[in-house]
Computed example of a mutant assay.
Amino acid sequence: MLQEKIIKLLGVSRQAVLKLRNGRIELGTNNLIKLAEILDVSLEELTEFVSAYQPSKY
């Protein structure tokens, strides 16, 4: 499964993934950069994509 591979490559725990999904924590800058590299997209593309699918906190 792709998600499992990404979790392993980033070196984050499943608990951290659940917290990310629930909005309890945010992915750090270093992991955002790693994720962009894994997905072969720019950091800008990644953050725009994530922002488009996140509910507004306001």
Results as ranks from 00 to 15, higher is better:
residue 55 P to S: 13
residue 1 M to G: 13
residue 1 M to K: 04
residue 54 Q to F: 05
residue 8 K to D: 14
residue 38 I to P: 01
residue 56 S to A: 12
residue 22 N to W: 01
residue 7 I to K: 14
residue 26 E to V: 14
residue 52 A to K: 04
residue 17 V to P: 03
residue 38 I to M: 06
residue 46 L to Y: 00
residue 27 L to N: 00
residue 49 F to R: 07
residue 16 A to R: 10
residue 22 N to S: 06
residue 11 G to F: 08
residue 23 G to A: 01
residue 14 R to I: 13
residue 15 Q to K: 13
residue 4 E to Q: 12
residue 50 V to R: 04
residue 13 S to I: 04
residue 54 Q to L: 11
residue 6 I to W: 09
residue 57 K to S: 13
residue 55 P to H: 12
residue 13 S to W: 11
residue 23 G to W: 02
residue 8 K to E: 15
residue 19 K to G: 02
residue 21 R to P: 03
residue 17 V to A: 00
residue 20 L to M: 10
residue 39 L to R: 05
residue 26 E to G: 12
residue 57 K to E: 11
residue 33 I to Q: 11
residue 57 K to L: 14
residue 19 K to D: 03
residue 2 L to P: 11
residue 34 K to R: 05
residue 39 L to C: 05
residue 24 R to N: 06
residue 46 L to Q: 06
residue 28 G to P: 03
residue 17 V to S: 04
residue 39 L to M: 07
residue 54 Q to R: 15
residue 47 T to Y: 09
residue 48 E to K: 13
residue 31 N to W: 03
residue 33 I to E: 14
residue 49 F to E: 09
residue 35 L to K: 00
residue 10 L to S: 02
residue 51 S to C: 02
residue 23 G to L: 02
residue 3 Q to D: 13
residue 16 A to I: 06
residue 16 A to V: 09
residue 44 E to W: 08
residue 49 F to K: 04
residue 31 N to L: 12
residue 44 E to M: 09
residue 14 R to W: 07
residue 37 E to D: 10
residue 9 L to I: 09
residue 5 K to V: 12
residue 47 T to C: 14
residue 18 L to M: 08
residue 52 A to Q: 11
residue 13 S to D: 01
residue 25 I to G: 01
residue 51 S to E: 15
residue 15 Q to A: 15
residue 23 G to I: 02
residue 36 A to K: 02
residue 31 N to Y: 04
residue 46 L to W: 00
residue 15 Q to I: 15
residue 6 I to F: 12
residue 42 S to N: 07
residue 50 V to W: 01
residue 29 T to A: 15
residue 16 A to D: 06
residue 20 L to K: 01
residue 3 Q to Y: 11
residue 41 V to Q: 08
residue 41 V to A: 03
residue 34 K to P: 01
residue 37 E to S: 09
residue 3 Q to A: 15
residue 13 S to C: 03
residue 45 E to V: 09
residue 2 L to N: 11
residue 48 E to C: 12
residue 37 E to G: 05
residue 35 L to D: 04
residue 10 L to Q: 02
residue 27 L to H: 00
residue 58 Y to W: 05
residue 23 G to M: 01
residue 15 Q to M: 14
residue 57 K to C: 04
residue 5 K to M: 14
residue 21 R to K: 14
residue 14 R to Y: 11
residue 5 K to P: 07
residue 7 I to C: 01
residue 37 E to T: 06
residue 1 M to T: 09
residue 6 I to T: 10
residue 42 S to F: 04
residue 13 S to L: 05
residue 16 A to P: 02
residue 55 P to R: 15
residue 55 P to Q: 15
residue 10 L to R: 01
residue 54 Q to Y: 08
residue 16 A to M: 08
residue 41 V to Y: 08
residue 11 G to P: 11
residue 27 L to F: 02
residue 19 K to E: 07
residue 29 T to E: 15
residue 33 I to F: 02
residue 49 F to M: 13
residue 24 R to S: 11
residue 53 Y to L: 15
residue 53 Y to E: 15
residue 44 E to T: 12
residue 2 L to G: 11
residue 3 Q to W: 10
residue 50 V to M: 10
residue 40 D to G: 00
residue 6 I to G: 04
residue 45 E to M: 10
residue 45 E to D: 11
residue 18 L to K: 13
residue 12 V to T: 06
residue 52 A to N: 12
residue 37 E to N: 13
residue 39 L to Y: 12
residue 32 L to C: 14
residue 24 R to C: 01
